Amino acid sequence: MSELVRLYRYKELLGGRRAVPAGELQSALEISRATFKRDIAKLRDQLKMPIRFDKERGGYVMDIAHADSSELPGLWFSPQEILALVTIQQLLAQLEPGILGPKLRPLQERLSDLMSRHGLTAGDVARRIRLVHAGKRQLHPAHFESVAAGTLGRKRLRVRHFNRQTGETLDRVISPQRLVHYRDNWYVDAWCHLREGLRSFSVDALTQVDVMEEGALEIEPGRLDEHLGGGYGIFGGAATAVARLRFTPERARWVRREQWHPNQQAWDEADGSYVLEVPYADDREILGDILRFGDDVEVVEPQGLRVKVRQALVEAAGRYV
């Protein structure tokens, strides 16, 4: 049994309410008395585990009141928690000093302290975990700060928005509802007073942002989720169609473990291919995701999406004649 696994076992053995005698611990872990003493010293002094010997009960116990905040280095972090810590670190590093500067330093210090108490340092994590950003667009720090201030402060925003689809720039007043971090970019879900409807705006597409004194129009969370969460990807709107995609057996090995939409349906076919059904409202993003798989995927239905994919592939092939 490795030392790491053995140290992990101590918390399991001492996780109950009864006191565990030293002999019982040594037997369960198959270690000598000398190794047991070294383990206890390391758990207490280096890893700050709240283990103590209870004379009255004749065994070792763990102080339950402090056990949840004392963990072994890295071992007690789930993959999601590790990713969250590293992501927060990177976000803070990217936002400071351009955004919120001094206000973020105490948070960075508290995060570093939390990680150090778990036997991790920012430098160690940075060396051992690498986050790869793909398609990340640069945003103006001051604009992000204003959008965040309006969203959290419940104030309307006067913005100048560049629509990449049409090439137009329009002045709008929006009531921000929430910030969204999606595929390495920031968006703000908001009520657009110009269009009188819910929209999702890419923060990097805002060329001017001013926080207004007027309070933001509040949208009921259920309505917000129904409108902006029912579509595919960042595009809002209640789903109006379902794309049925068939992936080749080779590509299925990857796609089978992916979630494209919370309400997707999927199954394997006899030949090893994988069929995925995904609801969508706006086909722009799902069209791009389909095209990146090339000939490893076929749009079975709807016919309109199938035609669009075919046209895009024909036009792409025409560029290489």
Rank of each mutant, 00 (worst) to 15 (best):
G215D: 14
G215A: 10
A216P: 02
E218Y: 10
I219H: 06
I219D: 08
P221L: 11
P221S: 11
G222A: 05
R223G: 07
D225F: 02
L228C: 01
G229S: 07
G229H: 01
G231D: 03
Y232H: 09
Y232F: 15
F235S: 10
G236H: 01
G236P: 01
G236A: 02
G237P: 02
G237N: 01
T240Q: 04
A243N: 04
R244D: 01
L245A: 06
R246W: 08
F247K: 01
R251C: 02
R253F: 00
R256D: 06
H261G: 03
Q265A: 11
Q265M: 12
E269W: 04
E269M: 06
E269P: 09
D271F: 12
G272N: 05
Y274N: 08
Y274E: 00
V275R: 05
L276R: 08
L276E: 14
E277P: 05
A281R: 12
D282Y: 15
R284Q: 14
E285M: 10
I286S: 02
L287V: 14
L287P: 06
I290L: 09
R292C: 14
G294A: 11
D295E: 12
D296C: 11
V297I: 13
V297K: 07
E298V: 15
G304Y: 03
V307F: 02
K308S: 12
K308L: 11
V309S: 03
V309Q: 01
R310Q: 13
E315P: 00
A316G: 11
G318E: 08
R319W: 06
R319T: 08
